Amino acid sequence: MSRTARVLTLVAAVVVLAGIAVGYTLHAVDRAARRDRPRAGGPRVSSGAVQLAAAPGDRRMVFRNTAWGPHRDELASVPADHPGGPRTASGVTCLRFHAAAGTGICLRAVHGALQDSYRAVVLDSRLRERRHYALSGIPTRARVSPDGRMAAWTVFVSGDSYAGTDFSTRTSVLDTRTWTLQDSLEKYRIIKDGHAYRAVDANFWGVTFADDDHFYATLATRGRTHLVRGDVRARTVRTLRENVECPSLSPGGTRIAFKKRVPGLPADAPWRLYTLDLGTLRETALAERRNVDDQAVWVDGNTVAYSLPGDYGANLWSVPADGGGRPRRLLDAGLAPAFIGAGPTRSR
């Protein structure tokens, strides 16, 4: 092949490669544009002010909006008694979220040039950042104590699912009054079945606060999960019952909603939703028969809410906490809800 022919071949190859690169770029831009464009038939979402404090008589639900469009992953708000109505988006993005008494905890991604990182952000009642903390893994659970003082979060240090056994978590507890951070519950003293217990495979997740000094959570060790009650000041946890994951304490403090592994179900979808009476340790299977991989939230003293997969990533559902009734879809395209403002607390 002559020198001229080689040059022409090289030029042609460069032109083809450049065309491929331009085509790929245009395709990526178009795909991003379609991703950010509101999908027909989706919920109505508009920008506005979102607060974590409700006016008297106004009860609201604040949650992560997962509808495709410019407000995807932003915290959004709807009236609690009209959750399917138009939602107000805040501009504040979170992967996991919870709030109580004017304090919010937002676990978010920080997008970098080479890779993403994650942080826990403490929010005030107007969603303004108070402080933030670097996270060592992928966000999965978040909770705030009833009076807003304490916050807790869990991340996957390795793995990204609770369904298998090949994962490791880290759960932290923060006092937002003193800014004292307990970076890992694995440093707590474990009392298992009445005896001191130590194990290198201990993992904790799913904190739910009773008050500023006490909480419930899941402990996993040696292939089993346990409900534990924790003491923040004493830095101890005590096991109460096996096969309890992602507990959520009722407003009256008498029951826990949780997900339970049920024998015979598929390994990748092993959970059903239950409640546990803390006085009698009697459990009740709820009417939701689908796999629930979530930490439920109490809507009031009689109803729990949880997320299930949907067309927009996740939908929020609710079901009575006494085992009766039937599941009801609260809203499309949302997860990680917090109910802001006074509501019924009866839990029997």
Rank of each mutant, 00 (worst) to 15 (best):
P337I: 13
L95Y: 11
V110L: 12
R261I: 10
R233M: 06
H82K: 13
L17F: 13
I256Y: 01
G164F: 01
V297P: 01
T176I: 11
L185H: 07
P270I: 10
V121R: 10
F215W: 10
G85W: 03
C246H: 02
E186T: 09
P146W: 04
R35Q: 13
G41P: 08
H71K: 06
P263E: 05
L278V: 11
A100W: 01
G159C: 12
V62L: 09
N291V: 10
T280C: 09
R72V: 13
Q295D: 03
T284H: 03
L114P: 02
V78L: 09
L316V: 05
D311R: 14
P83H: 04
S347Y: 03
A49G: 04
V7C: 04
S158A: 15
D175M: 07
E288K: 02
Y312A: 15
A314R: 05
R198T: 14
R229I: 10
S168I: 07
L107D: 08
R31E: 15
Y197N: 07
V244I: 11
D116P: 07
A28W: 09
W298G: 05
D160S: 11
R224F: 01
A80S: 13
F215G: 06
L10A: 15
A12G: 15
A18G: 15
I191F: 00
H226K: 01
D311G: 13
V297L: 04
C106D: 08
L316C: 05
P139V: 12
T171W: 00
R87F: 00
G148D: 08
F258E: 01
V157K: 10
D294N: 12
N243T: 10
H27A: 14
G57I: 13
D30G: 06
A28L: 15
Y274A: 02
P86M: 04
R289E: 14
